[in-house]
Design a protein around this nucleic acid. Structure first.
Length: 615
RNA sequence: CGGGGCGUAGCGUAGUCCGGUUAGCGCGCCUGCUUUGGGAGCAGGAGGUCGCAGGUUCGAAUCCUGCCGCCCCGACCA
């Protein structure tokens, strides 16, 4: 059998076909049978050989010279231009062979790391009975984001907590059977109101989601830690530069949660990050060390100032020739139908997430006409003196005095305000949004605030789903408890897109050896010359037989420049260039895509050099 | 869902304001010849319901109404 496998492998290389059926067609009856048997037994081995070589003349790799009109971010443009994806509808993409090869590489890494922590892979239905989702109240929670089937009571699964818990229920009945880690890599469906950034936010997308089932909170901690490590390994192996943000787990419930983020202008989250100590937090909760507004020794009585047409803090500072820190900006919000005045120092931004957690409910900025009714003045002239409702202020203003703020009368401000003396019922909270350049709360170095893409999210779910679905187990004392769960997700396409966002230049993508669809781009420059054909075919065979993944540009009648441009666009790590010029000296050229470095090597040293460069 | 932009050949686009030849150009595609180390040259050719529907008009890519699709900003985002 091994001999047969060997023969088949070489025959596959010899045929250089990408298609099993074609190979079958070319074989006589008994060999066909053996091929199929061998394929079944040695599938993994076969797959490696079967997938790794391709001639461009036979491949479907529709590259584009120009940027597609509807793509904005680099990864989207490059994925379309390199022939990896095509859009079918807004937020719905087909992966073409080249793009799908990268997806398979990413999922292979994910599978290896998930299996390494004891994960077991499932294949679950995307079509789910709505009833299960109603039991956890998530039909309502997801609302319009969930796709509903029209002619049957099914929904398209946007994630799989419910289904995994459903399978755990009644089966994981004893503490002895735990822990368990179950995962799947499958398509999820979400009716996003606005898909964007190519594959980064789609209406259907590939997600690896894993769930841990434990009988104790310590067990959950251990499962969480395993995933934390696995995720670091996965993103490291994918060559992604990421950072980790501690976050609240929001409406999912549960306690601890971490997000694996990538810095990107295309991101949908804003985070504060400290390069030096690694502190990272969503800007919604991020803190910084800032100087409080100092209290002056003398505190004179407050007084009204005429400030015609002065609305903004900047205008006020200019008009009165004062520093921003001497002002208190007023913002009126409405919560539970009650107005609240929020005082901030200077131009500091109100952080509405922090405000909501302070007030314990949703807030909204007051409408212009409401402001007039509540305060007697328009925005720009509102202040704490004479304000009759709840007043809270940012910590930075704690006990400050000699402040300027609005007079609740248009075109007037008040100076000499002493919050301690004049606003007795004021409460102070951290309410401001951190800004780039402020000091890290942990180490004091400078924080950077930027947009980021969420690649992965791990969190401790607790018992929310096991309780609502009744997934219970018996503990050591024979007592029934809900299973303690964790939930861990990775956006597979986002890994791909983020890799490209971090690895491209003006000519195209820059693949590393581990994620690239192939390792080597072999270019036969003039495929009408016998010597070029002969040499490049030989190199193709040699590299293939040695297990390298080779994309061979064997197209006849395509100009050298065209081939170079395609090779740079697709961006495989190495380009092996066979051209007449170097062949005269018995040499071929090897170009390292990332650095642009070119080396000439003798024909009999090609394999050694490739091996060295791809190490 | 709110605001803005766009929809013309496989891709990128001109023409639309101010209605009037056979809807133009670049790339790509097909045939032939030449060319072959950074997106070739010449010659010939194929390819269009101008997003869809209705209306105005002698005449509509162009004006009007409705709808659909796509992109961007915002809202939303377990």
């Amino acid at each position: 059998m091994f001999i047969l496998v060997f023969k088949l492998n070489s025959s596959i290389i010899h045929y250089q076909q990408s298609n099993l059926l074609k190979i079958c067609d070319d074989l006589q009856f008994p060999f066909r049978f053996y091929l199929v048997v061998t394929f079944l037994i040695f599938e993994a081995n076969f797959e490696t050989i079967y997938n790794t070589i391709m001639k461009i003349s036979k491949a479907f790799i529709p590259t584009l010279k120009e940027d597609p009109a509807d793509a904005v971010i680099p990864s989207h443009k490059l994925m379309v231009r390199a022939g990896m994806i095509r859009m079918l509808s807004a937020g719905i993409y087909s992966f073409l062979p080249l793009g799908y090869k990268v997806i398979k590489k990413i999922t292979k890494i994910i599978r290896e790391e998930m299996d390494a922590i004891g994960g077991q892979e499932f294949h679950l239905p995307a079509l789910n009975p709505k009833e299960i989702w109603e039991q956890t109240n998530r039909v309502e929670a997801f609302g319009d984001t969930m796709f509903h089937i029209k002619n049957r009571d099914y929904v398209l699964a946007p994630t799989h907590e419910e289904i995994m818990t459903y399978h755990a229920k009644g089966v994981l009945k004893s503490y002895k059977e735990m822990p368990q880690i179950w995962y799947q890599i499958q398509t999820k469906f979400r009716n996003e109101a606005r898909p964007r950034s190519g594959v980064i936010r789609g209406r259907q997308f590939l997600m690896k989601d894993a769930y841990s089932f434990d009988s104790s909170w310590e067990g959950l901690d251990a499962s969480y830690k395993l995933h934390d490590n696995a995720y670091r390994n996965i993103f490291d192996r994918c060559g992604i530069k990421y950072f980790i943000v501690g976050a609240s787990s929001g409406a999912m419930g549960g306690s601890k949660s971490e997000e694996f983020m990538v810095k990107s202008d295309a991101g949908e989250d804003t985070v504060a990050h400290c390069e030096s100590c690694g502190y990272a937090a969503n800007v919604e909760v991020a803190q910084s060390k800032i100087d409080p507004v100092e209290r002056h020794e003398e505190s004179k009585e407050f007084y009204e100032i005429s400030t015609p047409n002065i609305k903004s803090i900047n205008e006020l500072c200019e008009f009165l020739k004062i520093d921003e820190r001497q002002t208190a900006k007023s913002r009126v919000y409405v919560f539970n139908n009650e107005p609240v005045l929020v005082l901030m120092s200077g131009n500091d931004d109100v952080n509405e997430t922090k405000l909501e957690s302070v007030l314990g409910c949703a807030v909204r900025p007051g409408h212009p006409d409401e402001l007039k009714e509540i305060t007697g003045a328009d925005a720009g002239s509102i202040g704490p003196i004479g304000f009759k409702h709840k007043i809270i202020a940012d910590l930075r203003l704690e006990n400050a005095n000699s402040l300027y703020s609005g007079a609740n009368k248009n075109d007037f401000h008040i100076g000499g305000i002493d919050l301690k003396r004049d606003v007795p019922n004021i409460e102070y909270y951290d309410l401001r949004t951190v800004e780039s350049g402020e000091a890290c709360p942990k180490c004091g170095e400078k924080l950077e605030v930027f947009k980021a893409i969420e690649l992965g999210h791990i969190f401790k779910l607790g018992t929310k789903y096991s309780e609502s679905l009744g997934a219970m187990f018996l503990d050591e004392n024979g007592k029934e408890n809900p299973i303690i769960m964790g939930s861990y997700g990775i956006g597979v396409e986002r890994v791909l897109a983020c890799y490209i966002e971090q690895n491209y230049d003006e000519r195209g993508i820059l693949w590393d050896n581990n994620l690239g669809p192939y390792q080597i781009h072999l270019l036969g420059l003039n495929m009408k010359k016998d010597k070029v054909i002969e040499t490049s075919e030989k190199i193709y065979a040699t590299l293939s037989q040695n297990g390298y993944e080779v994309l061979f540009d064997d197209r006849k009648g395509v100009q050298a420049g065209f081939k170079f441009a395609d090779a740079d666009l697709i961006g495989l790590p190495l380009q092996v260039i066979v051209g007449e010029r170097a062949l005269k000296e018995n040499m071929i050229e090897i170009k390292v895509r990332r650095t642009g470095e070119r080396v000439k090597v003798n024909l009999d040293k090609v394999y050694d050099k490739v091996a060295e460069l791809l190490k």
